[in-house]
Amino acid sequence: MLQKVAVVLMEDVAVFEFGVLCEVFGIDRTDDGVPLFDFKVCSTRPGEPLQTSSHSQVVAPYGLDELEDADLVALPATTWRDAYDERILDALRRAEKRGAILLTVCSGAFVLGAAGLLDGRNCATHWRYAKTFRDQFPDANLDADVLFVDDGNIITSAGTAAGIDACLHLVRRELGSAVATRIARRMVVPPQRDGGQRQFVDVPVPESSGESLQPVLDYMVDNLTIEHTVPELARRARMSDRTFARRFVAETGTTPLKWVTTQRVLHARTLLEQTKLGIEQIAAQSGFGTAALLRHHFRRVVGVPPQDYRRTFQTTA
């Protein structure tokens, strides 16, 4: 059960990435049905200010002893370096050995690499640091094309906002889709994004009028059982087909078909967790039409067949 979360800070911590961990795990959302996490911010110098990468300071109230019984130990991004405080590395090794979950945001993966915890493990970090990471940790299996990697008790994410994806994925894995969706809704972010880092590598920012496609996305989610075409969606967005397709990829990282397919899978997953509906009924209500099509897409997105997922995650009495 995911209850106690310990975040480790060090000099040059990135404020946004630290804020992602605070936003997902450090805010009391019990009024919205989200469990309250025992959230501890730790460092080797509790109570003393640490410099951040944005020329400010932050104070961690707790010491590394809080890691000893934490269910999750999280590392935000920090300026990567050749060596890290051995006290932190030892605390991470002990946490991993006793079975705690370790999660990193962006360059936080370098700290786990320095602790020797990524040798032979699948992992991710920001695409800009891929070459440096591979040079420093040749025994790690780095995938620089994805938003995050779940390798069991170690979850590593790519740059900045990908940390949100990794955190919500972990919440979904440990506490279910309903909790992850409630947190995402309060953060005003999608519960799950499609696509990977490749879309962000050396690509110029597309021209945009600044008008969000959120109303169109909401319409698609509210109407999962009907087929959506680019011309129809473009008309709804009051754009040309070509402009709409370009803007859609820019905002979501994927195509309308792939995006709505993922939303259908997410809806099917919720129905599997929270209802006793049969697979054919779930296929119909989530927009797939047939159980065979649901099984195909569900396994591709989630990694297991619908029935296996239901046996593990169903919460209905």
Score class of each variant (00 low, 15 high):
V221E: 05
R193T: 09
M239I: 06
D222T: 04
G210R: 13
G195F: 02
D218L: 08
G210E: 11
M220G: 09
R236Q: 07
R238Q: 10
G210Q: 12
Y219F: 15
L233V: 05
G195K: 10
M220N: 11
P206V: 04
L213S: 04
P206C: 02
A237H: 10
N223M: 08
T225G: 04
Y219R: 14
V230Y: 01
V216S: 07
V205M: 14
L224F: 03
F200M: 10
E232C: 05
A234K: 00
S208D: 13
T229S: 12
I226A: 07
M239S: 05
E232P: 03
V203S: 01
V230N: 00
V216G: 06
Y219K: 15
D194F: 07
V203I: 12
E232M: 15
D194C: 11
D202Q: 13
D222M: 08
N223V: 05
V203W: 00
R235W: 13
V230W: 02
D222G: 10
P231N: 09
S208P: 01
P215F: 12
R193L: 15
P204Y: 09
T229A: 03
R236N: 04
V230I: 00
R193P: 03
A234C: 01
D222Y: 05
G196Y: 00
S208G: 14
T229D: 01
D202A: 08
R236T: 02
P204G: 06
M239D: 01
L233M: 03
G195H: 02
R238V: 10
Q192D: 14
V216T: 13
A237Y: 07
E232I: 08
E211A: 14
E232L: 04
